[in-house]
């Protein structure tokens, strides 16, 4: 068997929820330990590194604000891939993945908005300004809330999955707008200084805790997403068992 077909077969094996539950049960403890270790190391550097010569201690807000903003967008990209999985490949776990990621993405987006506001007040003199970056990020938050509401409002799970997937794909247009808003429009928000052409513009003193905290947030997302996916699979099993019980009761009762 070729390497490619073996990889495809392994990916297809994951489509089985029981196999996914077994694999994720083995992976989760390792991811949780890695998350705790990265948070320990990241927080140590975040709280002990030097303050900025202009911003002073407020630069430390960056170590929670920037990773949560990255994660807010990464979660949406995971949901976009899941939406493609639902609509194109009809992968049984794709909708489970999208549905599980929604509240996590909303929470990271809320955290980025709150910490951004707490950073903006002492640095810009304002809690909030309706500029391109902040407004597009606020729209991302509203999109997460809208998707959660839509996904839970529809009773038919297949219809909910397809409609949510279509809306997720439509909403993806906002991700490049958020990323490039600081280049396309005049904004108070600073332009990209880590992921940019020509390398990072941040000194190593600040980059080290930032990357460690970004790693910690990413591992936290993986752990939460796997955990929430497992819960969603169990929720669907409960619903299937209840339907099975109702069918059994109808059969036992016979026709009216």
């Amino acid at each position: 068997m070729s390497d490619t077909s073996l990889t495809i077969r392994r990916f297809a094996d994951l489509a089985n929820p029981t196999r996914f539950l077994a694999l994720s049960a083995r992976l989760l403890p390792w991811i949780c330990w890695l998350t705790a270790a990265l948070f320990g190391l990241g927080l140590f550097y975040a709280l002990t590194s030097a303050g900025d010569y202009q911003q002073g201690e407020t630069v430390r807000i960056m170590y929670v604000h920037v990773p949560s903003a990255w994660l807010a967008m990464m979660t949406y990209m995971v949901m976009t891939l899941s939406a493609l999985g639902t609509l194109v490949w009809r992968h049984p776990l794709a909708d489970v993945s999208a549905r599980a990621a929604m509240p996590i993405g909303a929470a990271f987006t809320a955290l980025a908005l709150v910490t951004g506001s707490l950073w903006g007040k002492p640095m810009w003199g304002a809690w909030w300004v309706w500029d391109a970056r902040l407004t597009s990020f606020f729209i991302l938050f509203l999109m997460y809330l809208g998707l959660i509401a839509l996904n839970r409002a529809l009773e038919d799970p297949t219809r909910a999955a397809r409609l949510s997937a279509i809306l997720i794909l439509l909403g993806f247009i906002n991700i490049p707008i958020i990323k490039f808003s600081v280049d396309w429009w005049n904004t108070l928000h600073q332009p990209a200084s880590v992921l940019r052409m020509g390398g990072s513009a941040i000194d190593g003193e600040f980059l080290r805790p930032l990357l460690l905290m970004a790693g910690a947030f990413t591992c936290l997302f993986l752990a939460l997403h796997l955990g929430a996916m497992r819960n969603e699979i169990l929720r669907r099993r409960v619903a299937a068992l209840r339907r099975q019980a109702a069918r059994g009761a109808l059969t036992a009762g016979g026709p009216a």
Binding site: T58, I61, L118
Partner: peptide, 14 residues
């Protein structure tokens, strides 16, 4: 330090 309340509030929110 000045503005330390904003830093503590950010970590508290996180």
């Amino acid at each position: 330090a000045p503005h330390i309340g904003f830093v503590l509030a950010s970590y508290g929110a996180a």
